[in-house]
């Protein structure tokens, strides 16, 4: 059975991979799919009804 700690480690690992792709190839299909998987994992931390969003203001 996977614990919260396992989940957090998996998220971190996935986000590292995503970050590498973003740095080398920018935001596109590949990084988007990685982010989709990251968000699916991250939702398990908050229960499958996340109503937050990342905020970035220019």
């Amino acid at each position: 059975m996977k614990t919260r700690e396992d989940l957090e480690k998996a998220i971190q690992k996935l986000e590292k991979t995503t970050q590498k792709v973003l740095e080398t190839r920018g935001y596109g299909e590949e990084s988007r799919k990685l982010r989709i998987l990251s968000e699916i994992l991250r939702e398990q931390l908050k229960n499958e009804d996340a109503r937050y969003s990342t905020r970035s203001v220019r």
Binding site: E29, R35, E39, S53, T54, R55
Partner: peptide, 30 residues
């Protein structure tokens, strides 16, 4: 209205769909 759905919507937008709701800019920001 979630990060996951915003990425999915951005995917369909990249395929040519008009979108409404949360999506992403071309640089990945909300």
């Amino acid at each position: 209205f979630s990060p996951l759905s915003s990425e999915l919507t951005a995917h369909f937008e990249s395929k040519g769909a008009q979108v409404a709701g949360y999506t992403r800019h071309s640089d990945g920001f909300l």
